[in-house]
Nucleic acid binder design. Structure first.
Length: 420
RNA sequence: GGGGGAAUGUCCCGAGCGGCAAAGGGGGCGGACUGUAAAUCCGCUGGCUACGCCUUCGCAGGUUCGAGUCCUGCUUCCCCCA
């Protein structure tokens, strides 16, 4: 952010010292607004998957801080815009989702927000509109006359998201080309309906957001503002939120609390401080202490990061439990009964189960072929013993005193088998 | 409308004189080293009832003992000329 600008509002002060800010259309103007009264701000969320992943956490945290500093957060469901598809930052058009998919995705995504925001009818309570409410009612000719006339195709062509596609000779359909018009219109609509004056988002949204600010001016709203976050990558340059098993989902039914905790626990050293600021609410001086830890002591900071971040999403109790499970598993080398568990039948056990099948059932490997290869590479363990023989049969004698069998892939991934 | 290219292992990029489960990267996973980190080194990276069988190179046919590789038609994308 602008070096010369020193924010005075609580909202911008927090965001800037924690590293949330990449660009703002008018720091001073926004700061003044935030100081004067209640700031109403929105962030749009596309309904392209049935859960958000950690990549969306940054914007969600901004809404949370907004609420904590006296503003009113408006997470906007993109039920309408998702039917069009945002071309920003993508070099190929996305598959067109069916309305059913979008509706299902929306329901999945909604759940997450209640963990981070307080909803209700109060002044500072969050509200969650869906842009399908107004976008699907638009009449084409009316929209062109009232809104479309304010858009300059010349300028739209110059925008990064569009230009990139054109420069690379990649198809950009008229449908997608309209996305920014709809997003811009959302901003105006949210201003009219709720008095929302700020739109936030990732840095890839900058173009779409300022286009909305501009549209507001032309359509006679009060002054609107744009604020974006930096694109979040790990210190080694990887995109945030992708792991082997896929995305780091926020919904517990798609990624267990324990795995979520593990995701944060495995943060690179260099990222610990940055992540503590962005994804926890620990005070800055405490974070400063944690990030100054050197060598292996930084692991303590990682555990705190993991527990704090997990507590915010899944609750303190579950987070502590995940931390304890990890402690028992990694630091004492014991089998915690709270590790992810798969239940098979007693009948299956009595007929004995091939190791390969067992690891596939446990979800640790995708196929028996992969299990075979992992065995060759020494990557599979049964009750902490390296599996040598791919013909090994698992039977009752492998159960511990609690009737549990532990399967591991590598050193970090463990699944327990129980029998009912 | 005419001419010329391209589509490869369902993560991506990308080689491939008719014998190919298909070179090489990237990414990912596993191993070693560590601190559940990074860097580095090594291995693996179609499926299965597994010394065998099955399915893969845009789609559909054809030639051949044998086709990713040759021929025909189709689809999609790119380039040049109109």
């Amino acid at each position: 952010m602008a070096e010369t600008f020193i924010p005075r509002s609580d909202f911008l002060k927090v965001l800037s010292e924690r590293g949330f800010i990449h660009q703002c259309s008018d720091y001073q103007g926004l700061d003044d607004k935030a100081r004067k009264g209640e700031l109403i701000a929105y962030i749009g969320f596309d309904c392209t998957a049935s859960s958000l992943h950690v990549g969306s956490l940054l914007p969600i945290m901004m809404l949370r801080w907004l609420q904590k500093t006296g503003g009113k957060p408006v997470p906007l469901m993109g039920g309408g815009t998702t039917r069009v598809g945002d071309p920003s930052g993508k070099d190929e058009s996305r598959k067109i989702l069916t309305l059913d998919d979008i509706e299902n995705n929306k329901n999945g995504i909604k759940q997450v927000f209640s963990h981070f925001l307080t909803f209700g009818d109060g002044k500072h309570d969050a509200i969650m509109p869906d842009n399908a409410e107004w976008l699907t009612k638009l009449n084409y000719i009316d929209f062109l006359r009232d809104v479309g006339r304010h858009f300059s195709v010349n300028r739209m062509l110059a925008m990064d998201s569009v230009k990139m596609r054109i420069d690379r000779d990649q198809e950009l359909s008229f449908l997608e080309f309209n996305y920014m018009c709809l997003q811009s219109y959302d901003f105006v609509e949210l201003n009219r309906r709720y008095g929302c004056i700020l739109q936030m988002g990732g840095s890839d949204q900058w173009g779409n957001i300022v286009t909305g600010v501009d549209l507001g001016r032309r359509m006679g709203t009060e002054q609107l503002y744009a604020l974006t976050t930096p694109l979040l990558t790990t210190a080694s340059g990887a995109k945030m939120g992708k792991t082997a098993a896929g995305a780091v989902w926020l919904n517990a039914d798609m990624l267990s609390v324990y795995d979520y905790w593990q995701f944060w626990r495995n943060t690179e050293d260099r990222d610990v401080g940055r992540f503590l600021k962005l994804f926890t609410e620990l005070p800055m001086d405490e974070i400063a202490k944690l990030e100054s830890l050197g060598g292996s002591e930084i692991n303590e900071a990682k555990k705190i990061l993991a527990t704090e971040a997990t507590a915010m999403l899944h609750g303190r109790e579950k987070a502590e439990k995940a931390a304890e499970t990890a402690r028992v598993t990694f630091e004492q080398g014991q089998t915690s009964t709270d590790l992810p568990t798969i239940t098979l039948t007693q009948a299956q056990l009595s007929q004995r189960i091939g190791v390969l099948t067992a690891f596939v059932e446990a979800g640790l490997v995708a196929s028996t072929g992969e299990a075979r290869r992992q065995i060759k590479g020494g990557g599979l363990r049964l009750n902490d013993e390296v599996v040598q023989d791919d013909k090994l049969l698992i039977e009752a004698s492998h159960q511990d005193q609690n009737g549990v069998i532990k399967l591991s892939l590598g050193k970090k991934k463990h699944v327990l088998l129980t029998f009912a």
